[in-house]
Each structure stands twice: as structure tokens, then as C-alpha cells.
Amino acid sequence: MTHAHLPTLRDEEWRYGNLAALQDMDVAAFENWRDIDVAAGEAVTQCFTLDHQGDADLVRVRVKIGPNARCSLFAVNTGGRYSRMEIVVRVATGGHFEFGGVTIGGGDATREFVTRIAHDEPGASSNQIVRAVHWGKATGNFLGRIDVVRDAQKTNAAQDFKAILLEKGATANAKPELEIFADDVKCAHGAAIGALDQTAAFYMAARGLPPELARKLQIRAFIADAFVALDDEAAQEAMLEQALAVLEERK
């Protein structure tokens, strides 16, 4: 890859990225999209894990959801120096898109989800829930954009980001965007960044739970929100365990 092909911090979708980690990436990786087409009335669910520990891991997904169809994507991002998942979605009338994602880990890594949902037909919906847990000097990012055109009346779209920083050196960034031209819609976004609930930790400690177990239970409850819509209980448990396993690094 030549420097001319690299994104820069002036590109809004890369403003929080670790661009130095992309220096040795093959330019072909930027054209390597995974396409998911969901036919009318069908339902598709897919789970992703980003755990590459090299310099950079880039996963790009394009989703096209037909009328009255549903696509649900879930992801755990525990990658190394820089791991990024991009999702671009178009939703037809009566369709629904669901995304649940977790970034978690320490070190000095940057882990992020970047989504863009296009509502250009009426009566469709989308919901995004992203949770981040980081320590050390790690960073967790969520950049989510929702576009609703003038004819996409009755759109119902939401995105929710929450982060827990276990140490002062960690960082979380959220950049929610709503561009709405229709007037009969329900669209919302929320973002919150904080520390573990010390009152809950004290409560569990008072009942004899070791601090490490109490912390794990708190974090489990926090990230579980991202996988509530995953109907397969075994898959849901597997995603949770993949995320929680990273906590062992911090001991």
C-alpha cells in the first residue's frame, strides 16, 4: 500500500483510528467486502469474532435487507494493535437490522465498530447496541450513522453505546450521527462512559464474593445487553465467554 491510499484523520469515519497500524496493509484489504443479501421475508443471523493480534485487522460487511426481511449481526472485538469492523446496511420496507457488538481488552490497542445504516424506504427499523470495556491504554470506539431519506416515513431506528473504563489510561469514543429528512419517524441515540458501579461491587463483597468474581459478574451483565437479541442461547453464551476470557489478561 502506498501512502496515497491510506485514509487520514480528516476522514470522519477514521478520525479515531490507529492509522499507523495500516501502513503495511495490502490495499486489496480495503476492497475486501463480505456481502450479505437477505431475500424478502427471510431472516439471517451471523456472529463475528475479531481477535487477530497482528498490526491491523479490518472486517468490512455490506448488508442488503429485502422487504419484510431481517438481518442480525453480532460481534466481539478483542483484537490487537488495531481492529476495526465496518458495516454498511440498506433496509427495504418492513425490514429490520439488528447489531450487537462488544469491544473489550487492554494494552494500547484500538478496537472499533463503524456502521452506516441507510433507511431509504418506509416502515423499516434498525437497532444497534454497542458495549465497550477497556483498560491499560486501550481505546474502544463506536461511530454510527443513520440516514433517513424523505420518503422513509415510519422509520424506527436507534443506537446505544455504553463504555466502562477499568483504568484511567483507557479511552472510549462515540460519534453517533442521525441525518433525517422524513418527519414521521422514531430515531434515537445514546452514549455513556463511566467506571464500574462501586455500590454494586461493595454489595457483592459484603456477601462474600471475591473482588475478581464480582467484577466479572458486573462486566458480564454490562456486555450481555449487546447479545440480548441473539436467539440462539448457545451462541449467546459463546459470545459472552469469548469476551470475558480477555479479562484473564488483566490479572
Rank of each mutant, 00 (worst) to 15 (best):
D160N: 15
F161L: 11
F161Y: 14
I164S: 00
I164P: 01
L165D: 00
L165E: 00
L165F: 09
L166N: 09
L166T: 07
E167D: 14
K168Y: 06
K168I: 00
K168W: 01
G169L: 11
G169D: 12
G169C: 11
A170T: 02
A170D: 01
A170H: 00
T171G: 05
T171R: 15
A172N: 00
N173M: 09
N173H: 15
K175A: 14
K175E: 11
P176Y: 07
E177D: 13
E177H: 12
L178D: 05
E179R: 11
F181T: 11
F181S: 14
F181Q: 14
F181N: 11
A182R: 10
A182P: 12
D184T: 10
D184K: 12
D184H: 14
D184Q: 15
V185Q: 07
V185I: 15
K186S: 12
C187P: 04
H189A: 06
H189D: 09
G190W: 09
G190D: 05
A191T: 04
A191Y: 01
A192L: 08
A192R: 05
A192P: 01
A195S: 14
A195T: 11
L196D: 02
D197P: 06
D197Y: 08
D197W: 03
Q198N: 13
Q198A: 13
Q198S: 13
A200M: 13
A200G: 05
F202K: 03
F202C: 04
Y203Q: 06
Y203H: 06
Y203W: 11
M204K: 05
A205W: 04
A205S: 15
A205I: 06
A205N: 08
A205E: 09
A206G: 09
A206T: 14
A206N: 14
R207C: 08
G208C: 10
G208A: 08
G208H: 07
L209R: 05
P210L: 02
P210T: 04
P211I: 00
P211A: 14
L213R: 13
A214R: 07
A214I: 06
A214C: 08
R215I: 02
R215T: 13
K216C: 03
K216A: 12
K216H: 13
L217K: 04
L217W: 06
L217I: 13
Q218Y: 02
R220Y: 05
R220P: 02
A221P: 01
F222G: 01
F222Y: 11
I223T: 03
I223Q: 00
I223W: 02
A224L: 04
D225Y: 03
D225W: 00
A226M: 07
F227M: 02
